[in-house]
Design a protein around this nucleic acid. Sequence first.
DNA 1: TATGGACCCTGTAGCAACTACAGGGTCAAG
DNA 2: CTTGACCCTGTAGTTGCTACAGGGTCCATA
Lengths: 141, 141
Amino acid sequence: MSDTFAIGELGRATDTKVETVRYYERIGLLAAPPRTSGNYRAYDRGHLNRLSFIRRSRDLGFSLDQVRALLDLADQRDRPCEAVDEIARGHLAEVERKIADLEALRDELRGMVRQCGHGSVRDCRIIEALSPGDALAAAPG
Amino acid sequence: MSDTFAIGELGRATDTKVETVRYYERIGLLAAPPRTSGNYRAYDRGHLNRLSFIRRSRDLGFSLDQVRALLDLADQRDRPCEAVDEIARGHLAEVERKIADLEALRDELRGMVRQCGHGSVRDCRIIEALSPGDALAAAPG
DNA sequence: TATGGACCCTGTAGCAACTACAGGGTCAAG
DNA sequence: CTTGACCCTGTAGTTGCTACAGGGTCCATA
Protein backbone atom coordinates (compact mmCIF):
# COMPACT_ATOMS: atom_id res chain seq x y z
CA MET A 1 0.00 0.00 0.00
CA SER A 2 2.99 2.29 -0.37
CA ASP A 3 2.44 4.98 -2.98
CA THR A 4 6.06 5.00 -4.06
CA PHE A 5 8.33 2.14 -4.98
CA ALA A 6 11.95 1.35 -5.64
CA ILE A 7 13.56 0.73 -8.99
CA GLY A 8 13.42 -3.05 -8.76
CA GLU A 9 9.69 -3.04 -8.23
CA LEU A 10 9.22 -0.64 -11.12
CA GLY A 11 11.31 -2.92 -13.28
CA ARG A 12 9.28 -5.97 -12.36
CA ALA A 13 6.03 -4.12 -13.01
CA THR A 14 7.10 -3.11 -16.50
CA ASP A 15 9.30 -6.03 -17.43
CA THR A 16 12.33 -3.78 -17.60
CA LYS A 17 15.82 -4.39 -16.28
CA VAL A 18 16.94 -2.06 -13.52
CA GLU A 19 19.90 -0.96 -15.61
CA THR A 20 17.57 -0.09 -18.45
CA VAL A 21 15.42 2.08 -16.20
CA ARG A 22 18.51 3.98 -15.09
CA TYR A 23 19.59 4.21 -18.71
CA TYR A 24 16.27 5.80 -19.68
CA GLU A 25 16.76 8.32 -16.92
CA ARG A 26 20.30 9.06 -18.04
CA ILE A 27 19.24 9.81 -21.60
CA GLY A 28 16.34 11.93 -20.40
CA LEU A 29 13.51 9.66 -21.46
CA LEU A 30 12.18 9.00 -17.97
CA ALA A 31 12.16 11.84 -15.43
CA ALA A 32 14.50 11.45 -12.49
CA PRO A 33 12.37 10.64 -9.43
CA PRO A 34 12.94 12.05 -5.96
CA ARG A 35 15.27 10.14 -3.67
CA THR A 36 14.76 8.61 -0.25
CA SER A 37 17.02 9.49 2.66
CA GLY A 38 19.14 6.51 1.69
CA ASN A 39 19.48 7.87 -1.86
CA TYR A 40 17.16 5.29 -3.38
CA ARG A 41 14.99 6.37 -6.32
CA ALA A 42 11.34 6.66 -5.25
CA TYR A 43 8.96 6.21 -8.17
CA ASP A 44 5.25 6.92 -8.25
CA ARG A 45 2.36 5.91 -10.49
CA GLY A 46 3.17 8.65 -13.00
CA HIS A 47 6.58 7.16 -13.59
CA LEU A 48 5.03 3.75 -13.94
CA ASN A 49 2.66 5.00 -16.63
CA ARG A 50 5.44 6.73 -18.45
CA LEU A 51 7.66 3.70 -18.43
CA SER A 52 4.82 1.45 -19.54
CA PHE A 53 4.23 3.75 -22.49
CA ILE A 54 7.92 3.65 -23.35
CA ARG A 55 8.11 -0.13 -23.15
CA ARG A 56 5.01 -0.69 -25.21
CA SER A 57 6.31 1.67 -27.87
CA ARG A 58 9.66 -0.09 -27.87
CA ASP A 59 7.93 -3.45 -28.19
CA LEU A 60 6.22 -2.06 -31.26
CA GLY A 61 9.61 -1.25 -32.67
CA PHE A 62 9.65 2.53 -32.32
CA SER A 63 13.15 3.93 -31.89
CA LEU A 64 14.02 5.79 -28.72
CA ASP A 65 13.91 9.04 -30.69
CA GLN A 66 10.43 8.20 -31.91
CA VAL A 67 9.38 7.30 -28.39
CA ARG A 68 10.69 10.64 -27.20
CA ALA A 69 8.65 12.42 -29.85
CA LEU A 70 5.54 10.39 -29.00
CA LEU A 71 5.91 11.21 -25.32
CA ASP A 72 6.25 14.91 -26.07
CA LEU A 73 3.18 14.78 -28.28
CA ALA A 74 1.18 12.78 -25.78
CA ASP A 75 1.65 15.65 -23.35
CA GLN A 76 0.24 18.27 -25.74
CA ARG A 77 -3.29 17.06 -25.34
CA ASP A 78 -4.94 19.98 -27.17
CA ARG A 79 -2.85 19.78 -30.30
CA PRO A 80 -4.09 17.91 -33.35
CA CYS A 81 -2.71 14.41 -33.49
CA GLU A 82 -1.38 14.57 -37.04
CA ALA A 83 2.20 14.41 -35.87
CA VAL A 84 1.44 11.27 -33.92
CA ASP A 85 -0.18 9.75 -36.97
CA GLU A 86 2.83 10.67 -39.07
CA ILE A 87 5.27 8.96 -36.74
CA ALA A 88 3.15 5.83 -36.66
CA ARG A 89 2.72 5.83 -40.44
CA GLY A 90 6.42 6.39 -40.96
CA HIS A 91 7.21 3.49 -38.69
CA LEU A 92 4.66 1.31 -40.39
CA ALA A 93 6.22 2.07 -43.77
CA GLU A 94 9.61 1.19 -42.35
CA VAL A 95 8.32 -2.11 -41.00
CA GLU A 96 6.72 -2.93 -44.34
CA ARG A 97 9.99 -2.23 -46.11
CA LYS A 98 11.85 -4.49 -43.70
CA ILE A 99 9.36 -7.28 -44.26
CA ALA A 100 9.78 -7.01 -48.03
CA ASP A 101 13.56 -7.09 -47.67
CA LEU A 102 13.44 -10.10 -45.40
CA GLU A 103 11.08 -11.93 -47.71
CA ALA A 104 13.48 -11.46 -50.61
CA LEU A 105 16.25 -12.70 -48.35
CA ARG A 106 14.20 -15.70 -47.27
CA ASP A 107 13.55 -16.66 -50.87
CA GLU A 108 17.24 -16.52 -51.70
CA LEU A 109 18.16 -18.55 -48.65
CA ARG A 110 15.48 -21.10 -49.45
CA GLY A 111 16.90 -21.42 -52.93
CA MET A 112 20.38 -21.93 -51.56
CA VAL A 113 19.35 -24.49 -48.98
CA ARG A 114 17.19 -26.38 -51.45
CA GLN A 115 20.09 -26.79 -53.86
CA CYS A 116 22.52 -28.10 -51.29
CA GLY A 117 23.47 -31.60 -52.44
CA HIS A 118 25.24 -32.54 -49.18
CA GLY A 119 28.37 -33.36 -51.09
CA SER A 120 31.73 -31.84 -50.27
CA VAL A 121 32.38 -28.17 -49.80
CA ARG A 122 34.04 -28.22 -53.22
CA ASP A 123 30.64 -28.61 -54.85
CA CYS A 124 28.62 -26.71 -52.28
CA ARG A 125 25.94 -24.60 -53.91
CA ILE A 126 25.72 -22.34 -50.92
CA ILE A 127 29.37 -21.41 -51.04
CA GLU A 128 29.02 -21.04 -54.77
CA ALA A 129 26.06 -18.74 -54.40
CA LEU A 130 28.02 -16.54 -52.07
CA SER A 131 31.14 -16.41 -54.21
CA PRO A 132 31.68 -13.80 -56.91
CA GLY A 133 30.92 -15.19 -60.35
CA ASP A 134 34.03 -14.75 -62.48
CA ALA A 135 36.33 -14.55 -59.52
CA LEU A 136 36.17 -18.25 -58.70
CA ALA A 137 38.78 -18.96 -61.36
CA ALA A 138 41.35 -17.05 -59.36
CA ALA A 139 40.68 -18.90 -56.13
CA PRO A 140 43.40 -21.20 -54.92
CA GLY A 141 42.41 -24.73 -55.66
CA MET B 1 46.21 -3.28 -66.04
CA SER B 2 47.82 -3.22 -62.64
CA ASP B 3 47.51 -6.51 -60.82
CA THR B 4 47.20 -4.86 -57.44
CA PHE B 5 45.04 -1.98 -56.34
CA ALA B 6 44.59 0.42 -53.46
CA ILE B 7 41.91 0.32 -50.82
CA GLY B 8 39.69 2.90 -52.49
CA GLU B 9 39.51 0.90 -55.67
CA LEU B 10 38.77 -2.27 -53.73
CA GLY B 11 36.02 -0.44 -51.92
CA ARG B 12 34.46 0.81 -55.15
CA ALA B 13 34.65 -2.66 -56.68
CA THR B 14 32.80 -4.24 -53.75
CA ASP B 15 30.59 -1.36 -52.70
CA THR B 16 32.33 -1.16 -49.35
CA LYS B 17 33.49 1.92 -47.48
CA VAL B 18 37.22 2.22 -47.02
CA GLU B 19 36.79 2.33 -43.26
CA THR B 20 34.83 -0.89 -43.40
CA VAL B 21 37.57 -2.65 -45.35
CA ARG B 22 40.10 -1.59 -42.71
CA TYR B 23 37.66 -2.70 -40.04
CA TYR B 24 37.41 -6.17 -41.58
CA GLU B 25 41.18 -6.36 -41.55
CA ARG B 26 41.34 -5.24 -37.93
CA ILE B 27 38.93 -7.93 -36.79
CA GLY B 28 40.75 -10.57 -38.82
CA LEU B 29 38.08 -11.19 -41.43
CA LEU B 30 40.12 -10.01 -44.39
CA ALA B 31 43.84 -10.81 -44.51
CA ALA B 32 46.19 -7.83 -44.25
CA PRO B 33 47.65 -7.23 -47.70
CA PRO B 34 51.29 -6.32 -48.39
CA ARG B 35 52.17 -2.64 -48.41
CA THR B 36 53.73 -0.40 -51.05
CA SER B 37 56.84 1.63 -50.35
CA GLY B 38 54.52 4.46 -49.35
CA ASN B 39 52.76 2.19 -46.84
CA TYR B 40 49.61 1.87 -48.92
CA ARG B 41 47.73 -1.42 -48.82
CA ALA B 42 48.16 -3.33 -52.09
CA TYR B 43 45.29 -5.75 -52.71
CA ASP B 44 45.12 -8.48 -55.33
CA ARG B 45 42.35 -10.52 -56.92
CA GLY B 46 42.28 -12.96 -54.02
CA HIS B 47 41.43 -10.19 -51.61
CA LEU B 48 38.76 -8.98 -53.99
CA ASN B 49 37.14 -12.41 -54.08
CA ARG B 50 37.30 -12.71 -50.35
CA LEU B 51 35.73 -9.32 -49.78
CA SER B 52 33.05 -9.99 -52.37
CA PHE B 53 32.14 -13.16 -50.52
CA ILE B 54 31.99 -11.28 -47.25
CA ARG B 55 29.83 -8.52 -48.65
CA ARG B 56 27.42 -10.85 -50.36
CA SER B 57 27.05 -12.85 -47.16
CA ARG B 58 26.47 -9.66 -45.20
CA ASP B 59 23.88 -8.53 -47.73
CA LEU B 60 22.11 -11.82 -47.12
CA GLY B 61 22.01 -10.98 -43.45
CA PHE B 62 24.66 -13.34 -42.11
CA SER B 63 26.38 -12.02 -39.00
CA LEU B 64 30.11 -11.44 -39.08
CA ASP B 65 30.56 -14.55 -36.95
CA GLN B 66 28.55 -16.56 -39.43
CA VAL B 67 30.56 -15.09 -42.29
CA ARG B 68 33.75 -16.07 -40.50
CA ALA B 69 32.47 -19.62 -40.16
CA LEU B 70 31.42 -19.73 -43.82
CA LEU B 71 34.84 -18.47 -44.92
CA ASP B 72 36.59 -21.11 -42.84
CA LEU B 73 34.34 -23.79 -44.29
CA ALA B 74 34.76 -22.55 -47.84
CA ASP B 75 38.49 -23.08 -47.40
CA GLN B 76 38.11 -26.70 -46.34
CA ARG B 77 37.12 -27.80 -49.81
CA ASP B 78 37.28 -31.55 -49.14
CA ARG B 79 35.03 -31.58 -46.11
CA PRO B 80 31.33 -32.39 -46.44
CA CYS B 81 29.22 -29.29 -46.70
CA GLU B 82 26.78 -30.12 -43.95
CA ALA B 83 28.13 -27.40 -41.71
CA VAL B 84 27.56 -24.84 -44.44
CA ASP B 85 24.05 -26.08 -44.90
CA GLU B 86 23.43 -25.86 -41.18
CA ILE B 87 24.50 -22.25 -41.01
CA ALA B 88 22.29 -21.37 -43.94
CA ARG B 89 19.33 -23.28 -42.49
CA GLY B 90 19.78 -21.68 -39.11
CA HIS B 91 19.88 -18.30 -40.71
CA LEU B 92 16.82 -19.05 -42.78
CA ALA B 93 14.90 -20.03 -39.64
CA GLU B 94 16.00 -16.80 -38.01
CA VAL B 95 14.84 -14.75 -40.98
CA GLU B 96 11.50 -16.52 -40.98
CA ARG B 97 11.06 -15.79 -37.30
CA LYS B 98 11.88 -12.14 -37.87
CA ILE B 99 9.35 -11.91 -40.69
CA ALA B 100 6.63 -13.39 -38.49
CA ASP B 101 7.45 -10.93 -35.71
CA LEU B 102 7.41 -7.98 -38.06
CA GLU B 103 4.13 -9.08 -39.61
CA ALA B 104 2.49 -9.15 -36.20
CA LEU B 105 3.94 -5.72 -35.57
CA ARG B 106 2.73 -4.42 -38.90
CA ASP B 107 -0.81 -5.60 -38.20
CA GLU B 108 -0.86 -3.81 -34.87
CA LEU B 109 0.50 -0.63 -36.39
CA ARG B 110 -2.02 -0.80 -39.22
CA GLY B 111 -4.81 -1.13 -36.72
CA MET B 112 -3.58 1.88 -34.83
CA VAL B 113 -3.13 4.04 -37.88
CA ARG B 114 -6.49 3.07 -39.31
CA GLN B 115 -8.26 4.15 -36.15
CA CYS B 116 -6.66 7.56 -35.97
CA GLY B 117 -9.50 10.05 -36.14
CA HIS B 118 -7.25 13.04 -36.83
CA GLY B 119 -8.73 14.88 -33.90
CA SER B 120 -6.74 16.22 -30.99
CA VAL B 121 -4.12 14.29 -29.11
CA ARG B 122 -6.63 13.96 -26.29
CA ASP B 123 -8.70 11.58 -28.39
CA CYS B 124 -5.85 10.00 -30.30
CA ARG B 125 -6.28 6.26 -30.61
CA ILE B 126 -2.60 5.80 -31.24
CA ILE B 127 -1.57 7.38 -27.99
CA GLU B 128 -4.35 5.47 -26.30
CA ALA B 129 -3.10 2.21 -27.75
CA LEU B 130 0.33 2.92 -26.38
CA SER B 131 -0.84 3.94 -22.94
CA PRO B 132 -1.29 1.43 -20.14
CA GLY B 133 -4.90 0.48 -19.70
CA ASP B 134 -5.91 1.38 -16.16
CA ALA B 135 -3.16 3.90 -15.78
CA LEU B 136 -4.80 6.55 -17.92
CA ALA B 137 -6.95 7.63 -15.00
CA ALA B 138 -3.84 8.75 -13.17
CA ALA B 139 -2.55 10.87 -16.04
CA PRO B 140 -2.68 14.64 -15.58
CA GLY B 141 -5.27 16.36 -17.67
C1' DT C 1 23.74 -6.03 18.55
C1' DA C 2 25.78 -8.23 14.86
C1' DT C 3 25.47 -10.27 10.48
C1' DG C 4 23.74 -11.97 6.26
C1' DG C 5 21.55 -11.31 2.04
C1' DA C 6 18.70 -8.71 -0.98
C1' DC C 7 18.47 -4.68 -2.71
C1' DC C 8 20.28 -0.01 -4.13
C1' DC C 9 24.06 3.52 -5.76
C1' DT C 10 27.72 5.45 -9.34
C1' DG C 11 30.72 4.88 -13.03
C1' DT C 12 32.69 2.55 -16.68
C1' DA C 13 33.22 -0.80 -20.30
C1' DG C 14 31.31 -4.08 -23.41
C1' DC C 15 28.16 -5.92 -27.46
C1' DA C 16 27.29 -5.57 -33.23
C1' DA C 17 28.91 -3.56 -37.22
C1' DC C 18 30.20 -0.15 -38.65
C1' DT C 19 31.01 5.27 -39.36
C1' DA C 20 33.27 9.59 -38.67
C1' DC C 21 36.51 12.28 -37.50
C1' DA C 22 41.51 14.38 -36.34
C1' DG C 23 45.93 14.93 -37.66
C1' DG C 24 48.99 13.58 -40.49
C1' DG C 25 51.71 11.29 -45.02
C1' DT C 26 51.90 10.16 -50.36
C1' DC C 27 51.40 10.85 -55.06
C1' DA C 28 50.26 12.54 -59.73
C1' DA C 29 48.95 16.59 -62.44
C1' DG C 30 49.53 21.24 -63.78
C1' DC D 1 55.85 23.57 -56.04
C1' DT D 2 51.45 23.55 -54.91
C1' DT D 3 46.87 21.65 -55.12
C1' DG D 4 43.80 18.01 -54.30
C1' DA D 5 42.71 13.32 -54.17
C1' DC D 6 43.93 9.71 -52.00
C1' DC D 7 46.13 6.99 -48.14
C1' DC D 8 47.73 6.14 -43.03
C1' DT D 9 46.79 5.43 -37.67
C1' DG D 10 44.09 5.93 -33.78
C1' DT D 11 40.17 7.08 -31.33
C1' DA D 12 35.45 8.11 -30.44
C1' DG D 13 30.68 8.04 -31.85
C1' DT D 14 26.29 5.47 -33.20
C1' DT D 15 21.76 2.39 -30.99
C1' DG D 16 19.85 0.33 -27.07
C1' DC D 17 20.93 -1.65 -23.88
C1' DT D 18 23.73 -5.07 -20.55
C1' DA D 19 27.31 -6.31 -17.28
C1' DC D 20 30.33 -5.61 -14.20
C1' DA D 21 33.26 -3.45 -10.02
C1' DG D 22 33.24 -1.52 -5.82
C1' DG D 23 30.72 0.26 -2.76
C1' DG D 24 26.19 1.78 0.45
C1' DT D 25 21.34 0.69 2.62
C1' DC D 26 17.82 -1.88 4.71
C1' DC D 27 15.56 -5.42 7.12
C1' DA D 28 15.11 -9.84 9.31
C1' DT D 29 16.95 -13.10 12.08
C1' DA D 30 20.25 -15.22 15.70
